[in-house]
Deep mutational scan, measured.
Amino acid sequence: QVALSRTQVCGILREELFQGDAFHQSDTHIFIIMGASGDLAKKKIYPTIWWLFRDGLLPENTFIVGYARSRLTVADIRKQSEPFFKATPEEKLKLEDFFARNSYVAGQYDDAASYQRLNSHMNALHLGSQANRLFYLALPPTVYEAVTKNIHESCMSQIGWNRIIVEKPFGRDLQSSDRLSNHISSLFREDQIYRIDHYLGKEMVQNLMVLRFANRIFGPIWNRDNIACVILTFKEPFGTEGRGGYFDEFGIIRDVMQNHLLQMLCLVAMEKPASTNSDDVRDEKVKVLKCISEVQANNVVLGQYVGNPDGEGEATKGYLDDPTVPRGSTTATFAAVVLYVENERWDGVPFILRCGKALNERKAEVRLQFHDVAGDIFHQQCKRNELVIRVQPNEAVYTKMMTKKPGMFFNPEESELDLTYGNRYKNVKLPDAYERLILDVFCGSQMHFVRSDELREAWRIFTPLLHQIELEKPKPIPYIYGSRGPTEADELMKRVGFQYEGTYKWVNPHKL
């Protein structure tokens, strides 16, 4: 086992960053958080920038500027975001240094004079007029057009580079997404736009490419001749908990499936790229999406959770019991969808996408189930092999396979070949997804960000279904809070070829 401390991990990262040409360590950078008073800024962006600063992973002359409508001070920003920093008493001095680099400007999102004030403020910072500028839009999409237009007109660096990070949702359907994309691309070049999907920053999602293309053993079996089906799962054990009003506007397909799960599907299904260059990788992902037809209604199961009468606390409440959810809402909190990649490698292999709230566990994984062994000599005792990439929690890679049961006879039983990170790298604290992705933006690497043509294809696949749901308002199937979801989803999976045995229990190697 390799035991690495946080300091050692960050030392390795620093070495990698400083050796590259793309990370300008000594240049002045300004990180501007648009929507600095909001939840995302408070819980994710400010803490992430602090962790990067604490670990010495930001360029040395980096300033952080918050911008929002609320009249706040840096002290206010500190008060609301610091509880999420997880700072230790030993880091007190470092924390003071961090907040000394912070400033805040209040202004409207659609007022040109406010942006001119913001620009004057940035120019007044040390070497601010020639600094590289990175704008993070932690804002609702309704203000994107006004904000990007004003940034472009008043706040661009004339000497350094300018980059803009856009948070999902990128529209509600193909038409609104196209409108937003066309607007942003009329102001910024594609190499300046970073559409963030934080799932692409997760260690195991990034590991998929290495697993596939750096190991000879997987190449020959990664196709329709050997793989019976692919299941991509995202499960949350909690409901909307008072935030249903926002969720109800989008629903589970827009929230998770059309982005996170579809991105994971691309990494499983794509061909080997010409290189690890950002556009070479994204070219292959677009090719996969172009091979997927629009979702067919007979390959869809929609569910909505109801309270568990035997549960406790939140578990007793259904989705419609959330006071922020519109009365009688038919918005799905669970969806199972089957897609097919219609190309030579994957023809006929079902890709089953499942996601839901208020389920029995927290889990995100990719599961490849292989065909049955031909010419069975073990009297149907063999179960199908599976390769599982567990994204969260407890990152893991393992192969479910058959071995001989101890004893006199040739009785096979299920076991696993474990390729888990935790076994080799004991207690290594890896940077989280937002840390990686923000560092990628500083480096100018777009590999783990969504390109406009990729986004367009993703919406093309799901828009007809979303429009049909909005028009017909089908009643989702009720499922109990804390269950596996509607049984109809299991029946759909069985119908397209997935075999669920229920006889195997994964042993978490992190707890051995």
Rank of each mutant, 00 (worst) to 15 (best):
I253Y: 00
R254N: 05
D255V: 03
V256N: 05
V256Q: 02
M257T: 12
M257I: 09
M257A: 11
Q258I: 04
Q258N: 03
Q258Y: 03
N259W: 02
L261P: 02
L262M: 12
Q263P: 04
M264I: 11
L265E: 02
L265I: 08
C266D: 06
C266A: 09
L267G: 06
M270K: 03
M270E: 04
M270W: 02
E271K: 07
E271N: 07
K272E: 10
K272F: 06
K272T: 05
P273R: 03
S275K: 04
T276H: 08
T276P: 10
T276D: 12
N277G: 13
N277C: 10
N277K: 13
S278V: 08
S278R: 07
D279T: 08
D280M: 10
D280T: 14
D280P: 09
V281H: 03
V281C: 09
D283G: 10
E284V: 09
V286F: 08
V288F: 08
L289Y: 06
C291E: 12
C291F: 09
I292P: 02
I292C: 14
S293D: 11
E294V: 11
E294W: 08
E294R: 13
Q296K: 15
V300R: 07
V300H: 12
V301K: 10
V301E: 09
L302M: 13
G303R: 00
Q304I: 01
Q304L: 00
V306Y: 14
G307K: 14
N308K: 14
P309L: 14
D310L: 13
G311W: 08
E312F: 13
G313C: 11
E314G: 09
E314F: 11
E314N: 11
T316P: 10
T316L: 14
K317G: 13
K317S: 13
G318D: 13
D321F: 06
D322Q: 05
D322Y: 04
D322I: 05
T324P: 07
V325M: 06
P326K: 05
G328E: 14
G328Y: 12
S329V: 03
A332P: 13
A332T: 05
A332Q: 08
T333V: 00
T333G: 02
T333F: 02
F334N: 03
A335C: 12
A335F: 04
A336M: 12
A336D: 07
V337D: 06
V337S: 14
V338C: 11
L339Y: 05
L339H: 08
L339S: 07
Y340F: 13
Y340C: 08
V341P: 05
V341A: 05
N343H: 07
N343L: 05
N343Y: 01
E344M: 07
W346T: 01
W346K: 04
V349N: 03
V349R: 01
I352E: 00
I352G: 04
R354Q: 03
C355D: 03
C355H: 01
C355L: 05
K357Q: 02
L359N: 03
N360E: 08
N360M: 01
N360L: 04
E361A: 08
E361S: 07
R362N: 06
R362G: 09
R362C: 08
K363W: 00
E365S: 08
L368W: 04
F370I: 07
D372S: 10
A374P: 13
A374K: 10
A374R: 10
A374M: 08
G375D: 14
D376V: 05
I377K: 06
F378W: 11
H379Q: 13
H379K: 13
Q380D: 14
Q381Y: 07
C382G: 12
K383T: 15
K383Q: 15
K383L: 13
N385R: 02
N385C: 05
N385Q: 06
N385I: 03
E386K: 01
V388M: 00
R390E: 07
R390Q: 12
V391Q: 04
V391I: 11
Q392D: 00
P393I: 04
N394C: 07
E395T: 07
E395F: 00
V397G: 01
Y398I: 03
Y398T: 01
T399Q: 07
M401F: 11
M401A: 12
M402P: 03
G407A: 08
M408T: 05
M408H: 11
M408P: 06
F409E: 14
F409A: 15
F410K: 08
F410W: 15
N411C: 09
P412K: 10
E413T: 12
E413V: 12
E414H: 09
S415P: 02
E416D: 14
E416R: 00
L417W: 00
D418G: 11
D418P: 00
T420L: 02
T420K: 06
T420N: 12
G422L: 09
G422S: 14
R424G: 03
K426A: 12
N427G: 13
N427Y: 08
N427I: 07
K429H: 12
K429D: 09
L430Q: 08
L430F: 09
L430E: 05
L430P: 14
L430I: 07
P431H: 12
A433Q: 00
Y434Q: 04
E435M: 08
R436D: 03
L437T: 01
I438Y: 06
L439M: 11
L439V: 14
V441Y: 00
F442A: 14
G444T: 06
S445K: 13
F449G: 05
V450W: 00
R451G: 04
S452M: 04
E454R: 01
E454H: 04
E457S: 09
E457K: 06
E457G: 08
E457V: 09
W459V: 01
R460I: 05
T463A: 06
L465H: 08
L465F: 14
H467V: 08
I469Q: 12
L471P: 06
L471R: 15
L471D: 15
E472L: 14
E472C: 11
K473I: 09
P474D: 13
P474Q: 11
K475E: 15
K475H: 15
P476D: 00
P476R: 00
P476G: 05
P478H: 11
P478S: 13
Y481V: 15
Y481A: 10
Y481E: 02
G482C: 05
S483P: 04
S483K: 08
S483E: 09
P486Y: 02
P486L: 06
T487K: 13
E488S: 14
L492I: 15
M493L: 12
M493Y: 11
M493K: 10
K494H: 13
R495H: 14
R495I: 14
G497R: 08
F498R: 07
F498Y: 15
E501W: 10
G502C: 11
G502K: 09
K505Q: 14
W506Y: 11
W506A: 04
W506G: 03
